[in-house]
Computed example of a mutant assay.
Amino acid sequence: MISAIANPIFQRAIQDYHVYDQIDHPIQNPYDKQSLEHLLYLKCWIDTVQWHMEDVVRNPAIDPKDGLYWKRRIDESNQYRTDTVEYIDSYFLQKYQDIEALPSAKINTESPAWAIDRLSILALKIYHMEQETLRSDATEVHISACQNKLNILLEQRMDLSQSIDELLTAIESGEKYMKVYKQMKMYNDPELNPVLYTSGK
């Protein structure tokens, strides 16, 4: 089951990042570059770095110039994240390319990789919510509230993991089929963003 592979990799990526807890610390992906595991680790590393960028940019005292700098880095990271999700979907498309869909087969509301994307983000929420429950400077009320939220997040991970596994099983059996749409983001494309393609006029 893919969730049994993905969840430990996500946890490892998050823990590896927090050894140094520095946005620009180089990634040291331990998995073979041709493997799905490599893509999963990369995906969660990108998410973890971006999580901390989002923390920085939300500082109410941030200098506007610094805020713009981080906003642009977040945009760049979002594109990198999207590209990586599409690489993961390409892996599944290749893996299931010879599967013949049943006449009754249905398409899913999202592709496997975009569901895995949510699982990666959920791993980050779980990590950081757990950190809140371990704070020595927080009140009991705060810790209790965070523990309740953590319990819900853990339940959500179980449900989402099961749903992803069931989706891939259904694709393997021909009960569902993959159909992937490229994100076609417009804001980074100088041919599609009017602010960019009119700026040189």
Rank of each mutant, 00 (worst) to 15 (best):
P64G: 02
K65H: 11
D66H: 08
W70T: 11
W70N: 12
W70S: 05
R73T: 00
I74W: 04
I74T: 07
D75N: 14
E76H: 15
E76F: 14
S77D: 06
S77Y: 08
Q79E: 13
Y80T: 12
Y80K: 11
T82W: 13
V85E: 03
V85F: 07
E86M: 12
E86W: 06
Y87S: 04
D89V: 00
S90T: 13
Q94A: 09
K95L: 12
K95H: 01
Y96V: 10
Q97H: 10
I99T: 14
E100Q: 13
A101D: 11
L102W: 06
L102T: 06
L102N: 12
P103V: 03
P103E: 04
S104F: 10
S104D: 07
A105C: 08
K106P: 06
I107N: 10
N108I: 04
T109Q: 09
E110V: 15
S111C: 07
P112L: 04
A113I: 01
W114K: 10
W114T: 09
I116Y: 05
I116G: 01
D117N: 12
D117W: 14
L119C: 08
I121W: 02
L124P: 00
I126F: 03
H128G: 06
M129L: 06
Q131R: 13
E132R: 05
E132G: 05
L134T: 04
S136G: 05
D137V: 06
T139I: 08
V141D: 15
S144C: 07
A145Q: 15
A145T: 14
Q147Y: 14
Q147S: 13
N148H: 10
N148G: 09
L150N: 04
N151C: 05
I152E: 14
I152S: 10
L153M: 08
L154S: 02
L154N: 08
Q156P: 00
R157A: 11
